[in-house]
Computed example of a mutant assay.
Amino acid sequence: MNDAEHLIAVIVVNWNNAEETLACLDSLEGAHGRGARVIVVDNGSRDGSPDRIASRCPWCELLRLDDNRGYGAACNAGARYAAGAGTSFAVFLNNDTIVRDGFELELVRALGDGSETAISVPKICFAAVPERLWYAGGIVDLEAGRVCHRGIREPDDGRYDVGGPTGYATGCCMAVRCRDFLDAGGFDEIYGMYAEDVDLSLRLKGAGKQIRYVPQAKVLHRVSSSAGGELHPVKILMKHRAMIRLVRQWCGTAGVVRYLLLSPFRLVSGIVSVGSFYRRAGGGRKGGA
């Protein structure tokens, strides 16, 4: 292990969800044992979860915010906290994930010397159906209002085991240099939840950097558990609003019009795809991208 690998902080955001956060932290004990700092940013929870986390995982650092500022703002606070203590790399990780051993080292190695790669991102599979992919890279076509995961719901059969540049990194799990992330302004906090990861990816790519998919690093995702599942109306509305904001920012009014015209067809297609996926998988808790 080289010196840089001792300067990694894994940042997990919690909000009134100790059970899932604790399961995620259990999977991170190996990373902690290798020298990574594990920082839990609590977004103003009122259910006692910060105290439960502190009691169960005293090896974690707990950063308590006064109120729920949203995922992007909590990650920004965690990155500033980590950088202020001299940490070089930050890995942002959803609390509804389980990581495979060594994932953080693979992601940091992929960042290389910093000349090209700004973000590295792992292969992510469904926790409920671990042989199926959730994310194997990202596809962005804002002119058509399309942002989607490569390989979603397809078998993890080796087809997506070659790494390389990709369209965008998912905020579910991504590694960055603290310096690069903060110099770029971090996540745009106006998004709150959803699309902040796409916006950050586009800004960094616009500055000449790459987003790199690293299939050697693997994460399992209990998808959309905090949002009630992929087809929960609140989640659909939140994603829709975030996409309108993203398309307006990057493509203007004409892009928003195209997005709105195509949205009903994509919504129906998505519902059919999710339903078919879980029927083939034999049921299980509803969830998705």
Rank of each mutant, 00 (worst) to 15 (best):
L7Y: 07
I11F: 04
W15L: 14
W15F: 15
A18L: 08
E19H: 12
L22V: 15
L28A: 00
R34I: 02
R34T: 07
G35F: 03
R37G: 04
S45I: 07
G48R: 08
S49H: 06
C60D: 04
L63H: 02
R64S: 13
R64N: 07
R64V: 13
C75H: 10
G84S: 08
S88D: 10
S88K: 13
N95T: 09
T97E: 02
T97C: 15
V99F: 03
G102N: 12
E106Q: 12
R109M: 01
D113E: 15
T117G: 00
A118S: 12
I119K: 00
K123Y: 03
F126H: 11
C148F: 12
H149C: 14
H149T: 08
G151K: 02
G158L: 08
G158H: 08
Y160V: 04
D161E: 15
V162S: 11
G167T: 07
A169Y: 03
T170R: 05
V176S: 01
D183F: 04
D188S: 04
G192S: 11
Y194M: 12
Y194Q: 04
D197Y: 03
V198S: 03
G206Y: 09
A207N: 09
Q210D: 10
A217S: 10
L220G: 07
V223D: 13
S224G: 07
S225D: 15
L231Y: 08
P233H: 15
K235N: 13
H240K: 15
A242K: 00
Q249R: 14
Q249D: 10
W250N: 05
G252E: 10
T253K: 11
T253Q: 08
V256G: 06
Y259A: 04
L261T: 13
P264M: 09
P264K: 04
V268G: 08
I271V: 14
F277Q: 02
R285M: 14
G287T: 06
